[in-house]
């Protein structure tokens, strides 16, 4: 996730102070990693420089800072372009696991064991996330679901690859 665009979106939802923005970000997107104040203010500085937000002057808020920020027309256009643009899937063929599997076959190492180890780790991670999900609020549950579906895709790839290791071995031997 592009954190500066997520912050721009939050400012776009209504004028806010940096202090409030940090807490809004953490509650909506900070499941895995909260954002430090320093990072919030440096990102706000860049957004002002790029003309995406502007200050509304000095007004008291919940925190020690006085400045309020609002999105500009340019910022809203930038934000809407990003929102409407489909994300490009990450190139799965470049994953470490793909490289490890191919290299294990080339090196006559145990590719099946490698895939088993990875499968066990991913299933363990899924179990942990599923436990975390049990009593989580809705937004956090949806973030966890997103992670679970991605891990499931990796597991499907492992199952498919595991079933095709013999053919794959012939293929990489030919290229070697």
């Amino acid at each position: 996730m592009d954190r500066s665009l997520a912050l721009l979106g939050l400012v776009g939802a209504g004028p806010t102070h940096g202090y409030d923005l940090k807490h809004r970000y953490d509650s909506v997107f900070g499941t895995a990693r909260v954002m430090a104040f320093g990072q919030i203010y440096s990102t706000l500085g860049r957004m002002i420089r790029d003309g995406h937000i502007e200050t509304l002057g000095q007004e008291p808020g919940a925190g020690p800072d006085r400045k309020r920020y609002q999105i500009t027309a340019t910022g809203r256009e930038h934000l809407q372009r990003w929102l409407r643009e489909p994300d490009v899937p990450s190139p799965q063929m470049q994953t470490n696991l793909f490289a490890k599997t191919v290299l294990a076959l080339m090196l006559d190492d145990d590719a099946d064991a490698l895939l088993d180890t990875q499968r066990t780790a991913l299933l363990g991670r899924m179990r942990q996330l599923t436990t975390d999900k049990a009593n989580a609020p809705l937004l956090e549950r949806l973030a966890i679901d997103h992670a679970l579906f991605h891990i499931e895709a990796d597991l499907r790839w492992i199952d498919m690859t595991s079933a095709r290791l013999t053919d794959m071995k012939n293929e990489v031997s030919f290229h070697a």
Binding site: D116, L123, L148, F149, I151, E152
Partner: peptide
């Protein structure tokens, strides 16, 4: 796998044996 994640642990059967 998402269903299996609700279990306490999993076993995987492959070629008539429990896997690794």
């Amino acid at each position: 796998a998402r269903t299996a994640a609700y279990a306490d642990r999993e076993v995987i059967v492959r070629d008539g044996r429990l896997s690794g």
